[in-house]
Write a protein that binds this DNA or RNA. Sequence first.
DNA 1: TCCGTCATGTAAATGGTTACATGATTCG
DNA 2: CGAATCATGTAACCATTTACATGACGGA
Lengths: 184, 184
Amino acid sequence: MARQAQTSTAVLGVLSIGSLTGYEIRQAISTVLGHFWHESFGQIYPCLADLEADGLVHATPGERSGSNRYEITAAGRQRLRELLATTPSAAPPRNGVLLRVFFGQSLAPADLDALLDDVVSEATGRLATYAGIRAAIVGDPAYPEHGRYWEATIRAGELTAQSQLVWATETRGTLLPPATIPAP
Amino acid sequence: MARQAQTSTAVLGVLSIGSLTGYEIRQAISTVLGHFWHESFGQIYPCLADLEADGLVHATPGERSGSNRYEITAAGRQRLRELLATTPSAAPPRNGVLLRVFFGQSLAPADLDALLDDVVSEATGRLATYAGIRAAIVGDPAYPEHGRYWEATIRAGELTAQSQLVWATETRGTLLPPATIPAP
DNA sequence: TCCGTCATGTAAATGGTTACATGATTCG
DNA sequence: CGAATCATGTAACCATTTACATGACGGA
């Protein structure tokens, strides 16, 4: 059994595109999948060991001494297909912003204002990031079929960020009396 | 130190509205905060013990033998205000749907279709739930000021669900050739 | 009487992050 | 040479879930 299904899926996924070292796997996950996924070294290395024990990946000595280059095996591709067909396990919800807004009565207007401000700048920042990624993958034909799926995940991020922007603006109008908003 | 800031905030929050037993706290969190927050018994009872040790809540024997009714103290209200003013810690992202879509090349069209279907029905279901809650709190004047904040959290859920609906529909159109979609 | 709900709590396992230890290689 | 980066791995810790153990009370 390969440790945790979620981590295995992400690792086998990136290895299905190309062979990488553990270090590079982590880089790939944080740069390419970063806007919707996360893995730390403490997860990746033990997971790779398990995957190798199960014959789902194969390690060959890398260019540097002591480094391993992992490639996915046929069994690994099969396993990836199975893992992807699984229905995703929904994480129990824990939205810190909404928790604070819900108890907004116990929160100073200035703090609520700051909270909503953070949501706006967070969402705005992410929209800028997505625009950059989109421009990069649309221009580059290096991602033949894969780019279409990549773009769909970017689109999800955009829609989420946009709805957060709408919510924060709306909510500021509803919950904060105009007088409490500092003039520009 | 009261165990974990997140759990303490939720527990102190519900106790700021009224006195409850541990069992009722859990119920309140799952029914009222359920669409954006979650706590299990294994978290709540130890947290209550810590909060009491810190003088933030006060336990009195409940109606039933062996039960405790907790009420928030003045120090507890103060602590809640401090906790709410804290910037929420962003959980590392882990979106199982997007992970599957990203590696959609390794996924059979039927499975991708099922995945998007799940997103649609999930979002649709949540919209119905929100409509119900909204009707209940708008009609009932039992929530004097609090209802405004409650409604803002419902609104956030609605916008999120709507954007997921848009995304799933859009994505189905982009990634799934019409032929693979079973006729109605 | 027995079942369901109310009620409290703990132990074990899980999933994950963080920090640390180690060392090779590259580049200025 | 020294700093940054590449690279691997482990140990400790943390938050949280799950399962379990226990028992009171009310109503069918």
